[in-house]
Amino acid sequence: MTEPLTTPAHIAQSIGLTTEEVFVGHHAGAAKAMRLENVTVTFGGRAAVRGVTFDAYQREVTALIGPSGSGKTTLLRALNRMHDTVRSAAVTGTVMLGDTDVYGRSTDPTLLRSRVGMVFQRPNPFPTMSIYENAVAGLRFNGVRKKSLLDEAAESSLVAAALWDSVRDRLKVHASTLSGGEQQRLCIARALAVEPEVLLMDEPTSALDPIATKRIEELIGELKDRVTIIIVTHNMQQAMRVSDRCAFLLMGEDRTGELIEFNSTSKLFSEPDDPRTLDYINGRFG
């Protein structure tokens, strides 16, 4: 008995193409998961990042790169309204999640965050919860009580985060017993379990060793059929390896981050449009 043709990977396989060719190869028609228009984030009136416009496409990984201070993380945190708790922070411009205006009057930030997941620099599983409870924490926050749905989501997300095989027998064990890399994958699973439309990753491998980093990078490639990924990284090789498109940010003269170039990753790293991008890439690659 064959599986129904459901995931893009299945579909691609069935017509003899790679997933990339099916979806990334058709930019003009690919759906936009998130659109940023002239987005500016200010703290106490001072802009940290200004006037950013680009689109993040479905089933793609979009990387935000640039030197430190260029506002990558600040920009990323604007996309799920994490700046809301900082009183001096203000976000202007437009962020659209599908048809939802992220900063719209009728948009609830709590509800929005169940549609836009986030993975942080340092693994931050909830240490007092078991692995299982970590995986379903987001579902419980969002009011899901049905055991079958929780179990299904936990397994699916742990499988997707390449953690299921190693933890299936110890789901009741505290999350703090996992290694750093496993903890970060648990955090990815935790975010995936809510089935967000977009997953924001803020330098997810910066606290990990090279082997754990490699596993997360592989994971990112596997996940993009499931969720649109926007990743901040300071590591250009990583951006090249994992992303389909890149947004290059740079700190301007007034110490405010600006978007210099947004392009497909292959184009940005081989023949960028902006000379500053070239300088940065060359500087980095020696």
């Binding site: 799920n80 994490m82 708790t85 709590t110 509800l111 929005l112 965050r113 169940s114 997941g117 986030m118 942080f120 340092r122 931050n124 599983p125 909830f126 240490p127 007092t128 919860m129 924490a137 987001g138 419980r140 926050f141 969002n142 955090c187 935790r190 975010a191 809510v194």
Partner: peptide, 26 residues
């Protein structure tokens, strides 16, 4: 740790859920 608070917030927890499910147990 504040990253616990952010972790819960980013999952769609309300303010009280962050306090009750993450901070108090922590």
């Amino acid at each position: 740790p504040h990253d616990q608070v952010e972790g819960a917030m980013a999952l769609g927890a309300t303010r009280w859920q962050v306090l009750r499910k993450v901070i108090v147990p922590g």
